[in-house]
């Protein structure tokens, strides 16, 4: 489809100087925006405009701009990653909007993800959860031949489905309780679905769950908002699996 030129796009953007200052919304207008641009390219244009006006540009996280690094994290018009399905913010294109639209842009809102500046939040809590057990304990070297561990293609596919999580945090931002269950369940499922991950499955699920609770993420009330907003279609069946594994591990303690 041929690109259109939007004469005006109005923006309401959350500005916050640093972690301790109070934030507020600021209004901006950008003009002559091609519908073929990505949302972040539109923000680039706005930022260069701000620099020309000698104002501080809007800070937002991004890096790969291909939907895989998980850095980008905007809450756009009330939806994590904006009004398109199965995409990250960096893959969202202006063609999803109309000329003259007002677009509201906020950071992820969750107690466990404090704002660092403007639209950038601190997702270190995810790191801590993974450090608590999101791995298979093997050192480099001394492992068996790769084909010595057959894995059925169905299990490999399911593991891959879960391993596709990019750690963006949209699930937490979408959840009214700020629960991290989808994220945790994705890692637990990925490793559990593979024979290599089974020996320490119990220990893994217990310590990741304990860490998650400790870091102030809320509990899961099964609304499915996380799955709906996950750009990588991580399924909430993973949460059911996580709960089962957790109970099993708990009872055998």
């Amino acid at each position: 489809m041929a690109d259109q030129i939007f004469k005006k796009i109005y923006l309401k953007v959350w500005r916050q100087k640093n972690a301790v200052s109070k934030g507020r919304f600021e209004k901006y207008t950008v003009e002559n925006i091609s519908s073929g641009l990505s949302f972040l390219e539109m923000l680039d244009i706005l930022n260069n405009q701000l620099i020309e006006e000698n104002k501080d540009p809007i800070a937002f996280d991004h890096d790969c701009r291909e939907g895989i690094c998980g850095a980008c994290s905007l809450y756009i018009n009330g939806r994590p990653h904006g009004p398109d399905d199965e995409v990250t913010t960096c893959q969202l294109h202006m063609r999803k909007f109309n000329d003259g639209d007002t677009i509201t842009v906020e950071p992820w809102r969750a107690g466990a993800f404090p704002v660092i500046k403007d639209l950038i939040v601190d997702r270190n809590a995810f790191e801590k959860i993974l450090q608590a057990g999101g791995f298979i304990s093997v050192n480099t070297g001394g492992v068996p031949d790769a084909n010595a561990i057959p894995v059925s293609p169905d299990d490999a596919e399911e593991a891959m489905d879960a391993a596709a999580c990019i750690g963006c945090g949209a699930c937490v931002a979408a959840c009214k309780n700020s629960s991290a269950m989808l994220f945790v369940s994705a890692k637990v499922s990925h490793l559990m679905k593979l024979p290599q991950g089974k020996p320490e499955a119990k220990r893994r699920v217990l310590s990741m769950m304990a860490k998650m609770d400790e870091l102030g993420f809320g509990s899961c009330s099964n609304t499915g908002a996380c799955e709906a907003e996950c750009p990588k279609k991580i399924s909430i069946t993973n949460i059911a699996r996580l709960n089962r594994e957790f109970l099993k591990a708990k009872f055998s303690e």
């Binding site: 298979i136 093997v138 480099t140 790769a146 084909n147 057959p150 894995v151 490999a156 490793l191 290599q196």
Partner: peptide, 22 residues
């Protein structure tokens, strides 16, 4: 070849054939 062995041991979900091999 050692790299593939290492990655499989870590749980990298490589594509598989029906028989379960890589």
């Amino acid at each position: 070849p050692n790299i593939i062995d290492q990655c499989v041991a870590q749980g990298v979900p490589f594509g598989r054939e029906y028989g379960g091999l890589l």
